[in-house]
Design a protein around this nucleic acid. Structure first.
Length: 438
DNA sequence: TCTGGGGTCCTAGGACCC
DNA sequence: TCTGGGGTCCTAGGACCC
């Protein structure tokens, strides 16, 4: 008989900010924020910035004066750096359980069900210490009988806002559900699976905490919050509904996209073509890096969301066969774009997506035509694309189709005024010893 | 002037079929 | 007084996650 489930969630504290601080220890006790593309939104906040009352995802311009008044150091998002740091954390976690799932760039679940750990509370604190020592990233470690409870535990740890990180186990041998007496301290909106809408609905009924939520009647929950909400509630009671997906949550993903808001409004078809072509290139690289091919692709262009009339144009193309070939995908994308382009509008955002993905090695050859010819052609395309990918990873963005354009100051390019160096992935960007903070 | 980007799953309703 | 009914597929929209 399988024993009960036990999960841990390791959640990196203020992850993007913590990454920047690893290489800028001078910023450790100072307020720091990381901004999204175009320096538009606040996507990571140090505890000092949280204390200023700046919410997650807030438009930067609305808080700019507060930032200046308090000397908040801001960075433009540097995803190459964060991705690399994320890998380091994941690697460290591998030593604590053979069953790990990288859930997002800053969170991993560990399955502890089959491990013999006597003191889960001490264990969780230990994990936090080791990760901090190995990577410099402070983490919150939560342990529970379900993923949702593990998640709840990390939320409770984070309430303490300790810069060094720490752990909490909600699993005790004596009692399970009432052990969640601690859940009285967790606001209902902080429960995994309860977003803004569901939170408002629950508050309307006087349900304020995770504890209140767990005590509700199943049928009523099903009615109000659907099967998703019901699962969340069951998980809160320690009834595990979700297992571990070994590897990454994104393994076997169903779609891939590349979308961006533009630095300025873009009206000309020529510029949109250049933007879309560069998005296709990104998507195709992602496809190839995952050994995937797509049967379907789509393009969308949008006007400014905050300035009515807001318009979105979307078009889809069915490919003649599954592909990850940049040239072919670009041709299709541009056809779609030209078909739906309307010169009366100025566009602020565009994107390219692919779906109906299949694994490249399970690719079916066409039923008609000379299969060996087809194979040759596919192989030569594969080799070309592999060569392009390898050159581009070494000399970032060196090679591309001409339509993509080469003007890095084009209107559609994002503004990123304060990017930190690629400390961990580019020798050229390593600071000299003795420079500020080293 | 200035508001991110990448995903998933569920549900309701319409089309279509027998 | 009556205008079937059930299954399946697709799509759009809404909710959620980080």
């Amino acid at each position: 008989m399988r024993q009960r489930s036990i999960f841990a969630l390791v959640d990196c504290n203020n992850f993007f900010v913590s990454c920047e601080r690893v290489f800028r220890p001078d910023l450790l006790a100072r307020p720091v924020a990381v901004l999204s593309n175009n320096d538009g939104c606040v996507v990571a906040r140090s505890n000092e910035v949280k204390a200023l009352g700046v919410p997650m995802g807030a438009p930067y311009f609305k808080h700019k004066s507060v930032f200046e008044r308090h000397g908040v150091k801001t960075f433009s998002a540097n995803f190459r750096l964060y991705g690399d740091m994320s890998q380091r954390v994941a690697q460290t976690l591998g030593q604590f359980s053979p069953q790990t799932e990288m859930y997002s760039i800053d969170e991993s679940f560990l399955d502890l069900s089959d491990l013999e750990i006597e003191d889960l509370q001490a264990w969780s604190n230990g994990v936090a210490k080791v990760v901090k020592r190995h990577t410099g990233i402070p983490v919150s470690v939560g342990v529970g009988a379900s993923k949702t409870l593990a998640k709840a535990a990390t939320e409770l740890v984070k309430q303490e806002r300790k810069d060094s990180g720490g752990g909490l186990s909600l699993v005790s041998l004596q009692n399970e559900y009432p052990a969640s007496g601690k859940l009285k301290n967790l606001p209902v909106g902080d429960v995994w699976g309860i977003g803004r809408r569901f939170e408002a609905k629950m508050l309307g009924y006087g349900i304020r905490t995770a504890y209140d939520l767990a005590a509700l009647n199943d049928r009523w929950v099903r009615q109000q919050l659907g099967v998703v909400g019901l699962r969340a509630v069951k998980e809160l009671r320690g009834e595990s509904c979700f297992g571990i997906h070994q590897g990454s949550s994104l393994d076997g993903q169903k779609s891939i996209s590349a979308t961006r808001s533009f630095g300025k409004g873009v009206g000309s078809l020529h510029q949109l073509e250049s933007a879309v072509a560069s998005f296709v290139a990104r998507v195709a690289v992602k496809l190839r890096s995952k050994d995937q091919l797509a049967w379907q692709m789509g393009v969308f262009i949008q006007t400014n969301r905050h300035r009515p009339p807001y318009q979105t144009f979307t078009g889809q193309a069915c490919l003649t066969g599954p592909s990850s070939n940049t040239t072919e995908l670009t041709r299709q994308a541009l056809t779609v774009l030209r078909r739906m382009y309307d010169s009366d509008f100025s566009y602020k955002r565009a994107g390219v997506f692919v779906n109906s993905l299949v694994s490249a090695d399970s690719q079916q050859l066409p039923l008609v035509g000379d299969a060996s010819n087809m194979l040759d052609r596919l192989n030569s395309q594969d080799r070309l694309m592999a060569a392009v990918d390898s050159l581009n990873s070494r000399y970032r963005g060196a090679i591309g189709l001409a339509v993509r354009g080469v003007d890095s100051r084009a209107d559609w390019q994002s503004r990123r005024r304060n990017v930190s160096p690629a400390y961990t992935t580019s020798w050229n960007e390593l600071p000299r010893v003795g420079a500020k903070g080293f």
